[in-house]
């Protein structure tokens, strides 16, 4: 899922400077799980914005609504009947959700409340870690299910650099060296021979931005439409 974190209140305050009627739109999927932009976090942000306004003697009303997802049109549609009332809309979705909301309601000021961090997994309560950089050319079969493009700071695909430090990374001693993990995993799997293959340079043309993908089944109908 997408992992995000709430921006400091100060930044959000600066964005809504001069606006009175605010709507916070939460997102009930990834960022709700990463405790950054779901129902609860929307409520917290609303309370903070209300308190702040009261302390500064500013007029401000803050309404809240959390939709299932902001990255699907269906869930953005019902917002149409409300948005005209507001001076500004704060979205607590990931960057994709914020953009989709802004795109659907082009005339509205849509502001981001989160910083989107990465595609990751839940390590434990309140802790997430990155697992995928969306490289468009998965090589996990070669590396025992551990991604050197993600876990190695230098995205090395042929083995460790000289900075391996007792199995930790020289860039951040808290983090594991990807290639120590890969080697140990492949050893356990009895597949060390696979690691001897020299991996060719990566094909970065696959990740030319902006990415767009059409499912095989929809290609023909898409073409007809166009």
């Amino acid at each position: 899922m997408i992992v995000a974190e709430r921006k400091p209140l100060q930044q959000i305050e600066a964005m809504i400077e001069g606006f009175e009627k605010i709507l916070i739109v939460g997102c009930g999927t990834c960022v709700a799980v990463s405790m950054a932009g779901g129902e609860k976090e929307v409520e917290e942000l609303a309370a903070q914005l209300r308190i702040k306004a009261k302390l500064q003697g500013k007029p401000r009303t803050v309404d809240e609504i959390t939709v299932t997802r902001q990255c699907d049109k269906e869930y953005l549609e019902p917002l149409a009947k409300y948005l005209d009332e507001y001076d500004a809309v704060i979205s607590t979705a990931c960057g994709a959700g914020v953009q989709f909301l802004a795109e659907r309601y082009e005339g509205r000021i849509v502001l981001p409340a989160l910083n989107t961090l990465f595609i990751g997994v839940t390590e434990g309560p309140g802790v997430w870690s990155q697992r995928c950089i969306a490289c468009a050319d998965c090589m996990l079969d070669q590396t025992g299910g551990i991604c050197p493009m993600t876990i190695c700071a230098k995205n090395l695909s042929n083995g460790p650099c000289g900075g391996t430090n007792a199995g930790k990374c020289e860039v951040d001693g808290e983090k594991d060296c990807a290639w120590t993990l890969i080697y140990r995993r492949m050893e356990k799997l009895g597949r060390l021979e696979y690691l001897k293959k020299i991996q060719p340079p990566r094909d970065y043309s696959l990740t030319t931005k902006p990415g767009r993908h059409t499912h095989e089944a929809f290609r023909q109908s898409q073409q007809e439409e166009e």
Binding site: R50, D63, E64, I65, T66, T68, Y75
Partner: peptide, 14 residues
């Protein structure tokens, strides 16, 4: 209760 999709007015919170 889950309130996905339900608008919560400022006044309801205050």
């Amino acid at each position: 209760e889950a309130k996905l999709g339900k608008l919560i007015r400022h006044a309801e919170r205050v």
